[in-house]
Design a protein around this nucleic acid. Structure first.
Lengths: 334, 334
DNA sequence: TTGTATGCGTTATCAG
DNA sequence: CTGATAACGCATACAA
């Protein structure tokens, strides 16, 4: 690999001059600049980004850690984040959060050690206090998607889980359902709890009973098993609210195997708007999460922070109801 | 951020000694080592990985670029690659290949500029000659998944697309089908062509006619549209081979909307074994690709290369048939 | 067992 | 406009 010194010699100038033309900082005579470019080309010289970073204390790199590489949701997140940061002249380095807060933290630290200029964290389970500690102690800005941290609101990009769950439930109720079961997410997840609370509160608001709440882990299989358990419990219900589309799919499969038609006998509502939704049979009603917008906003906030701008709190992102076949008007009570 | 110098002062030793205890290279008296650790702890000192990399010319980092962040397939790939490299003491940095060979190449170069020790590329469309050039010119080893490069066989981790497609087709034929349509992948993709060729050759081997070949882009929607086009063409067929599960899902939806039952009237075969497959209605027959094993092997080959071991060509990975509901015995000719 | 000096490839501060 | 030269933070050969 050619270094700046090789360029110096070939161009017959000093390192300083080469550096100047490279970063067009300071005045350089046209002719010498040309000579430098000439040398750079013939040598195929590329500046060593490590050395540059060491000298400037800036790597032009953003780090993203996602709680786990799973599902279309994360794909969108990564893609959009990658694209947005590229537009801002920053490379995005992505690391696996490995499903646990511990490994998420490890990933963050290794990104920090690599001197990323900022890190974006999409977490599912890291507790707010831990996040707060990290935000206070990390030498670079930390932006978090999906979790609110008191005192650091501008660095939090959140979705209004509660309201979206309320809307989903209202939709079911508006369709005439009054016995609605639920397959919730993991119990130790803040967002999962918010979705569940929205569901419960909406039911309560309409003086409707809780009829069966089961917990899954967001995977299809867990939705399948939860639904089987629900069926086994013999609690009557005409609609089912699943905390994400994958679990909804699993539930629909379980209902199918039990000989129950969706939506004729039981309506199913999902969450997240998985791209597969429109093609399922029946197609899946869901709540659309603006992941792309959230990813973009996260990067933008990071960039503002880096530029030294004052950043202000961003509004909660809100979902929108996607009406498809899996939810139908209540026909006969079950 | 505390530096090694701060540690020196606090521990009352020289940089060299600190460095020694840090990398346990050379002999250090227990007591002084303890003092160093002491200092490190109270300062919360973390070695600067950039400086270290600059000095050692090794970043302990592997780079992975995937052709696009899309689908469960890539999730598995990234997860396993991440895990494997972590086990080997290397951090995995992931970048988006942005769907085109041009941006894939850009991603590779930016990884190289960041001085990753090796790069793994999962590509869909980068031509073999381009890959060859890269392998020859890059200052670090390049391992490629999913494409064979002449003269660099040991660096290629490939799947036997052709044979797997043959097996899938044989399965359909064994079920009595003799009019089999196909929704293939993009025409400019090598692997897609291999799958299609396997399909065609197997048909030919059994003296069966080609009845309808349509091209999609691996997305669900394209499978949906391709199937509609196929239906519109009025060519009779009793089975459909889709080049991946997403397109198969789209096709099944299109058949459903046309009032055609799967598998009673038409059998559908997928490819890739998407995790959603078992839960679809009907559940989807498919070909399982050992992505995890391939990812792991890719990392392992990279590690061998880095250690200076001689590496030898790895066998083609082969798929296995996953039999589920979507393919049934031919009942009546259509 | 420990310290000194030098180099890794850049940037940046001064002089000239 | 250009060239020395000192950082940047760490590793390492060579002395002591």
């Amino acid at each position: 690999m050619a270094t700046i010194n090789d360029v110096c010699k070939l161009a017959g100038v000093s390192k300083a001059t080469v550096s100047r033309v490279l970063n067009n900082t300071g005045q350089v005579k046209k002719s010498t600049a040309d000579a430098v470019y000439q040398a750079i080309n013939t040598l195929g010289y590329k500046p060593n980004s490590l050395a540059r970073a060491l000298a400037t204390n800036c790597t032009n790199t953003l780090g993203l850690v996602v709680s786990a590489f799973e599902g279309a949701y994360f794909s969108s997140l990564m893609r959009k984040a990658s694209e947005t940061s590229a537009n801002d002249g920053k490379q995005l380095l992505i690391m696996d959060g490995g499903h646990s807060p511990q490994s998420e933290e490890k990933a963050i630290h290794s990104l920090v050690e690599r001197k990323v200029d900022a890190v974006i964290l999409y977490t599912r389970k890291m507790p707010a206090e831990k996040l707060k500690t990290l935000m206070e102690s990390l030498p670079v800005p930390l932006i978090v998607i999906n979790q609110m941290v008191e005192g650091f609101e501008p660095r939090c990009i959140c979705f209004d889980q509660y309201q979206a769950a309320c809307n989903a439930t209202e939709f079911l109720i508006a369709k005439g359902h009054n016995k609605i079961a639920c397959i919730s997410g993991p119990e130790n997840s803040v967002n999962s709890s918010l979705r569940l609370q929205g569901f419960k509160d909406t039911l309560a608001k309409h003086h409707l009973p809780l009829c069966g709440i089961y917990h899954g882990n967001y995977y299809t299989q867990s939705g399948y098993h939860a639904c089987q358990a629900l069926l086994d419990s013999n609690q009557p219900f005409s609609a089912l609210f699943a905390a994400n589309d994958s679990m909804a799919m699993g539930a629909i499969r379980a209902l199918h195997e039990a000989g129950i038609n969706v939506p004729e006998e039981i309506s199913v509502m999902g969450f997240d708007n998985d791209p597969a939704g429109p093609f399922l049979i029946p197609s899946l009603s869901s709540i659309m999460l603006p992941v792309d917008a959230m990813a973009q906003t996260a990067i933008e906030q990071a960039m503002r922070l880096l530029k030294g701008d004052k950043i202000s709190e961003v509004d909660l992102f809100s979902g929108s109801l996607i009406v498809r076949e899996s939810v139908d008007q209540l026909k006969k009570p079950r």
